[in-house]
Design a protein around this nucleic acid. Sequence first.
DNA 1: TGCCACATACCGACTGGTTAGTCTGTGGAG
DNA 2: CTCCACAGACTAACCAGTCGGTATGTGGCA
Lengths: 201, 201
Amino acid sequence: MTSPATRRQGSTTQPVPQRLLAAATRLFADRGYDRTSVQEIVEAAGVTKGALYHYFGSKDDLLHEIYGRVLRLQQERLDAFAEADAPVEQRLRDAAADVVVTTIENLDDASIFFRSMHQLSEEKQKQVRAERRRYHERFRALIEEGQKAGVFSTATPADLVVDYHFGSVHHLSTWYRPGGRLTPQQVADHLADLLLRALRP
Amino acid sequence: MTSPATRRQGSTTQPVPQRLLAAATRLFADRGYDRTSVQEIVEAAGVTKGALYHYFGSKDDLLHEIYGRVLRLQQERLDAFAEADAPVEQRLRDAAADVVVTTIENLDDASIFFRSMHQLSEEKQKQVRAERRRYHERFRALIEEGQKAGVFSTATPADLVVDYHFGSVHHLSTWYRPGGRLTPQQVADHLADLLLRALRP
DNA sequence: TGCCACATACCGACTGGTTAGTCTGTGGAG
DNA sequence: CTCCACAGACTAACCAGTCGGTATGTGGCA
């Protein structure tokens, strides 16, 4: 009935690889990659080292998986918004707000993402940077489209605008606390609004 | 003639504590706090562990010193701009641009600042957060002043605006490379411009 | 002027503790 | 009987911090 990796005690728990990934995410976000021992991860996931090294090649691999998950999710969502059938202003606003909401909903991923690049092997870093660049370029294309159409100011180069906005997204994990004064959606609306206001011709 | 700590070989080198701080800054920025061994720091500074532990209580202390240096510098500069005799828009623009230039000029400090909070002891973290909050509040006060005066839009709460701007400052160490297309001053002008444009009523 | 007492500024071998990754073993499903 | 999915003891490496020692300078006193 249950898949081979999905049995442990009575209740229906997640399969082991997912449990490991979830435990690692929580711990990496909480105390940082280097401060988290493999032993702590496997204990939090309720397994042992044997299980971890059965599914992952190294501690580093675990981190890489987390990066992959974030990048895939965000790229997918951006693509959807960018391809929508609406005026550029609307598409940009939606995309800008969505990345804020998604980031807040996965704050652990976000704090790992921006703090732990260096702990990845050089090769994996290169891969992550390449995917990140694709994302960045897609976003920039939206801004350039609006600039060419004359609905956005051309006072600032588009890639600087992208960095400006993603700086604030990046920063969310530093100050946003769940249950704060503003809901994720409200924060997203405000930040998207600031972006669009800055781009008014 | 030379102070006791200022003699080593023929040439006039910096005193040992500064050399250690400089070496630690470079290494922490480069490979992260946890990935940098005390041995590497002392080797880079041309001394031994004995010297380091003569001047600093712990590796953690070294990091704390770096934080202190950054915070003091930025607070000083912000205070100067905020107290200047000029219209709010001007004071805010100057302060916003200055923090960008100063951050770029000390990019190593910046990447350490935003990546290594967690490696500080809980107590030192609290101290740093308190100083950071003071800085933040000073900046926010500028925005609120402009909002009350009617020269800035009140569409977005002032503290969100502060986080928006400092997100982009924070982010600089991720993308800015010395010798890039834009000079630090140009980047600063653009980012300050984006802020002021977003605040137009 | 000479000498002693003490301090400051380091040196570098050593220790105790931790950690990523390995490897051999085992229980249950097919 | 075999193989998958994991268990858990073990190892080799590393590292922060300690500590006893040395060299150089300095102030007081005879």
